[in-house]
Simulated assay, not measured.
Amino acid sequence: MQERAEATRRFLVEAAAELFEERGYAGTSISDISARSGRTSGAIYFHFANKERLALAVVEATLGTWPEMIAGVRAARGSALEKLVALSFSVARAFRDDVVVRAGSRLWMERKAIDAPVPGPFGAWTDTVAELLREAAAEGELAADVAPEAAALTVVYAFFGLHTISDALDGRALIEKRLRDMWLLLLRALQADPDPAGVLGRAAAAAGEPAPA
């Protein structure tokens, strides 16, 4: 019974995510989610007390995708900077391809319309980037004048700003190209011996993917 309930909750979260991503929080009702999911409003309320709780479940599902992704990238071969670059491409693809992640991002942007505290991703991502940059410094990869904590904030600002603009321009269709361009610029400032194209190529190879074009 517990497994069936969890499967139903996941199904409802995904159906709600589709609508939140398409229409936003204010433009989506429980009736809309009922119609999209094929479940009655009563069934939805059985699992989620209100629309706010369902929106929070979408955001929490988004945040829940990151630890496994981070662990997978960290376990791969390569330097700390290569892992940071590889992680950024994994996250970018999730934003492009995963409707729950896209919905979670939109709900965060619309958080003032939600009558409940909405957890945000930026603190955890800044900590993760700072940790990788500290490792890069210990490995001798990082330029001597780069402070990992301050640089982490800049990387996070650039990454999420890139996503916002890319979504507005073309629905993130060119996100990988734009992300490559971002790293070609940032790595010149971050690396002790700049080799941006080399880092990008090695990061892609370690992930078993073609070098980003």
Rank of each mutant, 00 (worst) to 15 (best):
M1R: 10
E3A: 13
E3D: 13
E3P: 08
T8A: 08
T8M: 07
T8I: 06
F11V: 14
V13S: 02
E14C: 04
A15C: 04
A16P: 04
E18N: 02
E21T: 08
E21S: 13
E21R: 08
E22Q: 12
Y25H: 06
Y25E: 05
G27N: 01
G27S: 03
G27F: 05
T28S: 05
S29T: 04
I30L: 13
I33R: 01
S34H: 02
R36E: 15
G38W: 03
R39S: 15
T40L: 09
G42H: 04
A43K: 02
I44F: 02
I44K: 01
F46L: 12
H47A: 07
A49G: 14
K51S: 07
K51L: 09
L54C: 07
L54F: 05
L56E: 12
L56V: 08
V58H: 02
V59H: 04
V59S: 03
T62R: 09
E68R: 07
M69D: 09
I70N: 05
V73N: 04
R74V: 13
A75C: 14
S79K: 08
E82S: 05
E82H: 06
A86F: 00
L87D: 10
L87S: 11
F89Y: 00
F89M: 00
S90G: 13
R93Y: 06
A94H: 15
F95V: 11
F95R: 08
D98H: 09
D98F: 11
V101D: 00
A103D: 00
S105M: 12
R106H: 10
L107D: 02
W108H: 12
M109E: 14
R111G: 06
K112G: 12
I114N: 01
I114P: 00
V118G: 03
P119D: 03
G120Q: 07
G120Y: 05
G123Q: 07
T128S: 08
T128D: 09
T128N: 07
R134Y: 12
R134N: 09
A136P: 02
A136R: 03
A137T: 05
A137W: 06
A137V: 06
A138M: 07
G140I: 00
E141R: 05
E141C: 07
E141Q: 13
E141A: 14
L142D: 09
A143M: 10
A144N: 10
A147L: 13
A147V: 15
E149A: 04
A150E: 14
L153Q: 14
T154D: 11
Y157T: 09
Y157M: 14
F160T: 07
G161K: 06
L162N: 06
I165G: 13
D167V: 11
R172P: 08
R172G: 10
A173Y: 12
A173P: 06
I175W: 04
I175S: 03
E176H: 12
K177D: 13
L179D: 04
D181N: 15
W183D: 12
L184R: 11
L185N: 07
L185Y: 13
L186T: 04
A192K: 13
G198M: 09
G198A: 11
L200K: 03
A204Q: 05
A204F: 03
A205Q: 09
A205L: 09
A206H: 10
E209G: 03
E209N: 00
P210F: 02
P210T: 02
